[in-house]
């Protein structure tokens, strides 16, 4: 058993990493356990702390050969110690994690670390388009044809998720972000049909409240799309948002501008990108998520809402947006 202490991570980030580590467990040569205690066998250190290693009261005493530094990009600071390539996504690559921790266990890592995996994030669906009928999302969508209740569990981790397809609800103790690592667990999910009575007993016993299934569907699709456009969408399709998605969902709040634009205009996605400046990958993630829960309308004709806002007004809105963002950084 190797112990690993995470330094500089939020509770959500720790929970995500812990979940991915649990998924990796069957493939790891040794068991790994996240600990809050010191000393630990290894220390996983957030990238923002790298520059403080020599000055920080606690960090400066950590043996470098036991430090694992997170790298988000190929241009990250070079530092003595092990370097774990996390990439830009919210969870690290499972495949890379397994390789990295197995090498640590074998003590084969000395002065170099494994090369960053190609094509980050590792796509779970090896196609050019996103297929929502696979994996975790596929399990959620399939009962739409034969409504029933079912339970999703994970072979190696403490996931319990109940879905009432008839009532379009789901029940779980986890937040949406905490469920994220399971979205990519294609082989280790277990699904079991349950009766309405069994569902009632289980959810009442665990005091679980019903939540709209559309929230889970939206967030799962948004996360799993990884920039790919959903199958069945043709380039040039003219689309419009029929209704706002739930802006409180993780990832959605930061795409309010995209939602506002797509709510007002019936255009193709390339025009959305050109008009808003939002990267096409994010547009695809957002579009797929809204489409899966029925918020997208298709049109034969382009309909652009000519909002009369001149450059001066636009600059004013940008200044206000910048000021609000500064306040957000201060309070976060």
């Amino acid at each position: 058993m190797n112990t690993l202490k995470m330094i500089g991570f939020s509770d959500v980030e720790k929970a995500r990493f812990s979940a991915v580590l649990a998924l990796a467990d069957p493939q790891l040569k040794q068991a790994w356990k996240i600990t809050e205690s010191v000393p630990a066998d290894f220390y996983l250190i957030k990238e923002r702390l790298i520059t403080q290693m020599d000055a920080h009261e606690i960090l400066k005493h950590l043996p470098r050969q036991q430090c694992i530094f997170i790298r988000r990009s190929d241009n990250a600071l070079i530092v003595d110690g092990h370097q774990f390539f996390w990439g830009e996504q919210d969870v690290p690559s499972l495949r890379y994690l397994v390789e990295f921790f197995n090498q640590l266990s074998d003590n084969k890592i000395a002065s170099s670390s494994p090369s960053p995996p190609e094509n980050q994030p590792t796509p779970i669906f090896e196609t050019s388009h996103f297929n929502p009928q696979q994996g975790f999302l596929g399990h959620l969508l399939t009962p739409a044809k034969t409504p029933q209740a079912f339970k999703l569990a994970h072979q190696h981790a403490d996931l319990t998720l109940y879905v009432d397809a008839e009532q379009n609800s789901y029940y779980t103790k986890s937040t949406l972000e905490q469920l994220e690592p399971y979205f990519f667990a294609t082989d280790t999910l277990q699904i079991a049909n349950i009766t309405a009575q069994q569902l009632l007993t289980a959810t009442a016993g665990q005091e679980l409240k019903a939540q709209p299934l559309t929230h889970l569907l939206w967030f799962t699709t948004f996360t799993c799309s990884q920039g790919k456009l959903i199958e069945g969408h043709q380039k040039g399709d003219i689309v419009q948002l029929k209704r706002w998605p739930n802006l409180n969902l993780p990832g959605c709040k930061r795409l309010v501008k995209l939602a506002a634009y797509m709510h007002s205009n019936a255009v193709d996605l390339d025009t959305v990108q050109a008009s808003t400046g939002i990267p096409i990958a994010q547009i695809h993630n957002f579009y797929n998520a809204c489409k899966v829960i029925g918020l997208i309308a298709h049109s034969q004709h382009t309909d652009v809402h000519e909002k009369t806002i001149n450059d001066e007004q636009k600059q004013l809105l940008e200044k206000i947006g910048k000021r609000l963002n500064e306040t957000l950084q201060l309070v976060a």
């Binding site: 309010v256 939602a259 506002a260 809402h305 909002k307 636009k314 809105l317 206000i320 963002n325």
Partner: peptide, 11 residues
């Protein structure tokens, strides 16, 4: 307020 700004720009 950021949502309101987005609405001001596009709605």
């Amino acid at each position: 307020l950021e949502t309101l700004l987005a609405s001001l720009e596009y709605l």
